[in-house]
């Protein structure tokens, strides 16, 4: 039986390890990264994966080996010992050092993601300066959709004021987030009702929308997936499989799972502007702006 238990522990853990090895090849892995800071995030993930993978292999091997080697034998006793100070110190300090390193290694990337300037990674100093910005978008979550508002001229004069009240000239959209490649985007994330969470897997980005607050969200997409076709009057994908989605990550009621949106990254600012002009024209034609502006304006 001893061997059986050894095999059970060893094989199950080996299978766990194996799953992590084969999954990337099967495509069960991180979706394609398109964020400027995404590679940093992925690298941190791999760093932690390496560190934890190492400890996983060591501890599980020791355990499995102990199960195999140290079965009860008649007439034999275990080694009588109550511990070993040197060992305790060793296995406290080594993980401590590794973990502290892992911790501080996160700081610069976190700062990049969260729109704060960090001067050096240790000691941590945030300067809180605003980064450069090409585009403002207001994103209002509600049960169960994402409502977007795009300003004319990409950046309104008074951003905070605009995020609150909007402007009659804004372009409105639902569930469709448009940006252009390499644009430094700042979203003003809001919610009308409950907490939602904006999740863009390809952008490695997640941010809750809090009732009563406007959350800043920044990102820069470094790869494009669409192009505006002015003749046909619609977007054409730049390649197969370049569908990037937007989801809600915080439980927000019955249709939480259905808050699916899409991210369109235009190949250039010009292309985005062509799309924008056409979309705005269509909107005027449909006379939508008045209704929406009236509703939005009346809310707050």
């Amino acid at each position: 039986m001893r061997v059986f238990w050894f095999l059970l522990f060893a094989l199950v853990n080996l299978a766990c390890l194996g799953l992590f090895v084969v999954s990337p090849w099967l495509g069960w892995w991180l979706p394609k990264n398109i964020a400027s800071f995404g590679q940093d995030v992925d690298n941190l993930f791999y760093l932690i994966l390496a560190a934890t993978g190492f400890f996983f292999v060591v501890t599980q091997s020791v355990l499995a080996l102990a199960i195999l080697r140290y079965g009860e034998r008649p007439g034999e006793k275990s080694r009588y010992t109550h511990g070993h100070t040197g060992l305790e110190i060793t296995w406290t300090l080594i993980p401590l050092a590794i973990l502290i390193y892992l911790g501080f290694a996160q700081v610069p990337t976190w700062a990049k993601m969260k729109y704060i300037n960090v001067e050096s990674w240790f000691p941590i100093r945030y300067s809180g300066k605003n980064l450069q910005q090409d585009q403002s978008i207001c994103l209002v979550a509600r049960q169960w959709e994402w409502r977007l508002r795009y300003p004319q001229g990409h950046i309104p004069a008074d951003q905070n004021q605009w995020a609150e009240n909007g402007d009659p000239g804004d372009l409105h959209a639902v569930n469709e987030l448009h940006v252009w490649k390499n644009s430094q985007v700042r979203l003003h994330l809001k919610t009308e009702d409950v907490i939602h969470s904006l999740f863009l897997p390809n952008l490695r980005l997640k941010q809750d929308a809090l009732p009563g607050k406007t959350m800043p969200v920044v990102f820069q997409a470094i790869e494009a997936n669409v192009k505006w076709d002015p003749v046909a009057g619609h977007l054409v994908p730049l390649g197969p499989g370049l569908e990037w989605e937007m989801a809600c990550a915080e439980l927000c009621g019955g249709q939480h799972y259905r808050m699916r949106g899409r991210l369109f990254v235009h190949e250039s600012k010009q292309d985005y502007e062509k799309w924008f002009a056409q979309a705005l024209k269509n909107q005027r034609l449909r006379e939508l702006p008045k209704q929406v502006a009236a509703r939005e304006g009346g809310n707050r």
Partner: peptide
Amino acid sequence: TILIAVPSAIKTFNWLATLWESRIRY
């Protein structure tokens, strides 16, 4: 949070060390 992993690791290592050179009844 990352620091909490240290005492967790200490516990694990001590369990493993307890098993080392023991005589296990399965």
